[in-house]
Amino acid sequence: MRHFMIIEAPSNLGLKELRPGVEPGVRRLPEALRKTELALEAGINHVICIPTPPYSMDIDGESGVRNAEAIAAYSEKLAASVREAVEKDIIPIVIGGDCSILIGNALGLRSTGKDYGLFAMDGHHDYMWPEYSGTAGAAGMALAIVAGKGHAKLTNIGHLGPYIKEEYIYAYGNRELEAGYVQLITDSKIHYYDLPAIREQGTHAITAGFLTMIGQAGLDGFWVHLDVDVLDNDVMPCVDSPLPGGLSYREWEETLQPLIASRYFKGMNITILDPSMDRDNRYTKAFSERLAALLRPAVKGLSNS
């Protein structure tokens, strides 16, 4: 029997304002998924919330990252809860929030003293650092930060960086295909699969390759980072940086099913869905229903290796 919990991490500190005076609404996702009864539908009974600092547009002069000190402090709090869960063999489902919550999750895994992999599903690869960012937002740098690229204020919290080694990371779903942007990640050791590569190779081959890598590398497990903008904009338009195309829900489910069912699966986070962009709640409700259906078999102990 596998034990699951939900950790609410409603941080929007990694994003710039939607427009002057309007903070990002991603912090409302935990509340929105409570209303859709995600936990009940998935069969999860334990829910906690890690409160976040007030939103700010401040750019840290030392690191060049917006709200760097607040994000670092919040990451330590989130990491403590993730570490406690993982050490008790509880699988946390962390509801964000923006992608900067990946920092705290990865830090929590690393603080156990073990090595983990990361399967990062995202419509952007988020492998960049301040000099390449047009927003100074940590959300767009999250993958680079957890891999140790950037200022130590975020990449080396507690002298534990890198939190996840590049060779243990799969970046899956990018469809921002500008050559300079893509080169940042293709020059790294990360296993990179953009949307055209997924369509060419197929979801099953890529996820099977990832799970094989986890086993062969002798890792203690892996985390899934799920930015909902990996989904096709037609089925998930409630995001801050929409792009044409994306995964269908069927492709999304085919990707996640073997990952969640794996005995190596140690947790996941969900980010970027902004309920304030979903006036009639239809997209949030559909997402919640599909996520609950994916989680339910694992929560009920119907998983495999």
Score class of each variant (00 low, 15 high):
I185V: 11
I145R: 02
P162T: 05
Q201G: 13
A261D: 15
T255Q: 14
P244S: 10
P244I: 06
A144E: 07
G209E: 07
A144T: 07
A144R: 07
Q216H: 14
G140M: 07
I169Q: 03
P162G: 05
L219N: 04
H204A: 15
T255E: 14
G221Q: 11
I198M: 12
L143V: 15
L259T: 10
G202K: 15
F210I: 05
D232W: 12
A139C: 14
G161T: 11
A197Q: 15
E200N: 13
D220M: 10
K266W: 09
Q216A: 14
I260N: 01
D234Q: 15
Q257I: 12
L231K: 03
L273C: 09
T255C: 15
A147I: 07
A144W: 06
T203Q: 14
E166G: 05
T186L: 02
L184E: 12
L143A: 10
L211Y: 06
P237R: 10
Y170M: 00
E253P: 10
A179P: 00
L226H: 00
H225K: 04
G180D: 12
G267R: 13
E254I: 12
E200L: 15
N233D: 15
I157K: 03
I270N: 01
G150P: 01
I145F: 07
R175A: 09
D240K: 10
V224S: 04
V182H: 08
L243H: 02
F265K: 03
L247M: 15
V230S: 04
I185K: 01
I185Y: 01
I260Q: 00
L160I: 06
I206K: 05
V239L: 05
E200D: 14
V239M: 05
T207L: 08
Y163G: 05
T155S: 13
G209T: 04
I206A: 05
L273P: 02
M213K: 13
I260M: 07
M236W: 06
G148Y: 08
G267W: 09
R263D: 13
A179K: 09
G215W: 00
A142T: 15
L273H: 12
A205G: 01
L247D: 04
